[in-house]
């Protein structure tokens, strides 16, 4: 028996909105530790890694490890039926081929449930080694989304370069070039507005705008985003989900041929 209750169903809806651009379907691995998902986009350039801890749920029970393959478009349809303030309870029997989502309104005056068919998906998991990153940038997630959106107008790639002076985002294309430089700023009153850089050595890497733009769909999940970079290693873009876990995106760099 699997049962997970989340008072803020909107958090799960935000997670779905953040990954549906990249993934059509995905397997949710449920265990006593929580719910995990790891899946690559169809071109194997980026990877989504979701970790929702069991103790972040308002109720969590998983008697037997369970992998639930879901079509994310269908899952999106189910969550479209929920109210913004609803509580969601996910339930599945052991070896079940369906999962049930029950939505309860805040006042408990409306309860709806939707049963969705599960899928058998070929799971491809990648082993991601622990990496000593050359630089770790933490910045407001809204600012990151804005910069990626703005620079995407100039070219298909964005160069992210980080030095002790700050971080620079650059793009160039037919119409010209764009550069955005951010210096470190410590705002002790509003931590979420700070830009912080933990630098071991300067690094500059090039990434496809299309994927960076998709990652920023996770902006509503977190005030801050963490970018971890290292030469010859994919970029890690991490959004902390308060009290529940994190959503990470991995993106292979572009390299000179």
């Amino acid at each position: 028996m699997f049962e997970a209750r989340l008072v803020n169903s909107s958090t799960f809806r935000k997670v779905l909105d953040a990954i549906k651009d990249l993934l059509n379907e995905a397997s949710f691995d449920c265990s006593e530790n929580g719910i995990q998902l790891q899946a690559m986009d169809s071109s194997h350039v980026s990877l989504v890694s979701l970790n929702l801890k069991s103790d972040g749920f308002d109720k969590f029970r998983c008697d037997r490890n369970l992998t639930m393959g879901m079509n994310l478009t269908s899952l999106g349809k189910v969550f479209k039926c929920s109210g913004a303030d609803d509580t969601v309870t996910m339930k599945a029997q052991d070896y079940a081929d369906t999962v049930t989502f029950m939505f309860e309104s805040k006042k408990q005056d409306k309860i709806s449930d939707y049963e969705m068919k599960l899928m058998n998906l070929d799971q491809e998991h990648l082993g991601i080694p622990d990496t000593e990153f050359s630089c770790i940038i933490k910045m407001p997630s809204i600012e990151f989304a804005r910069i990626i959106r703005d620079l995407s107008q100039f070219g298909e790639s964005i160069v992210i370069s980080c030095t002790k002076e700050g971080v620079k985002f650059s793009a160039q294309g037919d119409i010209g070039t764009g550069n955005v430089k951010l210096a470190q700023t410590h705002n002790f009153d509003k931590e979420e507005e700070s830009v912080t850089i933990d630098l071991q050595e300067p690094v500059a890497l090039t990434f496809a705008c299309q994927y960076l733009n998709s990652f920023t769909k996770a902006t509503p999940l977190s005030n801050q985003v963490k970018l971890s970079m290292c030469e010859n290693v994919p970029l890690v873009v991490e959004y902390q989900i308060p009290e529940l876990g994190h959503l990470r995106f991995y993106l292979a760099p572009k390299i000179e041929e």
Binding site: S43, L126, G127, S157, V233, P234, Y250, A252, I255, E256
Partner: peptide
Amino acid sequence: ENYQARLEQYYTRL
């Protein structure tokens, strides 16, 4: 021209 790397170039399949 930039060549797009794939994740398998960096990570192993489990």
